[in-house]
C-alpha cells in the first residue's frame, strides 16, 4: 500500500518553499539541490501542482515558483490528491459501483477499506504546510541550540 514517490516529493518541494521562501519566488534548481530530487522530475511534479492551483510561477530575473495560496490553507491531503488519482486504498471506498464482484452486496471487508481511508483523511486533511513548516523550524532550532551547547 504505497504512495507514489511523486506525491511524497510534491510535499517535499512545497514544504521547502514554505520553510525557506514563503514570500519570494524560488528557483527550481535551488529546491532540487536541497531536496536531492532531479530538476526534470520536480518540473513534472510542479506542473501538476500548478494545475491544481497550489503553486504559481513568477517570470523575470527574480522568477521561480511560489505558493499559490497561504501555507495555512494548503493541506497535505490537497497535495497528495493533486498527484494521485486515488488516495483511497481500494476503489470501492468511493462508490460500491466500482466493484465488479457479483457478491459485492454482502461485502464486509469494504468496511475495513473505508476505515483505513477515514484514518488517512483524518490525518492528511488536518495537517497544513504551515503546521509542518513551524514544526520543522522549531526542531531545527532546538537541534542547533543543542549543538552549540
Amino acid at each position: 500500500m504505497k504512495l507514489s514517490t511523486k506525491s511524497r516529493y510534491a510535499l517535499e518541494g512545497l514544504l521547502y518553499i514554505a520553510i525557506h521562501s514563503p514570500t519570494e519566488a524560488v528557483r527550481i534548481k535551488q529546491i532540487a539541490e536541497c531536496t536531492k530530487i532531479s530538476v526534470a522530475y520536480l518540473e513534472q511534479i510542479f506542473f501538476l501542482l500548478k494545475k491544481s492551483n497550489l503553486l504559481t510561477t513568477v517570470r523575470g530575473s527574480k522568477g521561480g515558483y511560489t505558493l499559490a495560496k497561504p501555507s495555512q490553507e494548503i493541506t497535505v491531503g490537497m497535495i497528495i490528491r493533486s498527484i494521485e488519482t486515488h488516495i483511497v486504498p481500494v476503489a470501492c471506498v468511493g462508490s460500491l459501483s466500482e466493484c465488479n464482484s457479483r457478491v459485492r452486496a454482502n461485502c464486509v471487508s469494504r468496511q475495513i477499506w473505508i476505515q483505513i481511508n477515514d484514518t488517512i483523511n483524518r490525518i492528511v486533511d488536518h495537517l497544513t504546510l504551515q503546521d509542518l513548516a513551524d514544526r520543522y523550524k522549531a526542531q531545527n532550532l532546538t537541534a542547533k541550540k543543542g549543538d552549540s551547547q
Binding site: L3, R8, L11, E12, L15, Y16, I19, C34, T35, K36, V76, I116, T119, I120, R122, I123, V124, L127, L132, R135, Y136, Q139, N140
Partner: peptide, 21 residues
C-alpha cells in the same frame, strides 16, 4: 540518502500514517 526535509516528513507524516493504520 534522506535529505533533512525527507527524514522530517518521514517522522512527522508518513510514520504517523503507518502507525495510525
Amino acid at each position: 540518502k534522506d535529505s533533512e526535509i525527507r527524514s522530517f516528513l518521514r517522522s512527522e507524516v508518513w510514520d504517523v500514517l503507518d502507525q495510525e493504520i
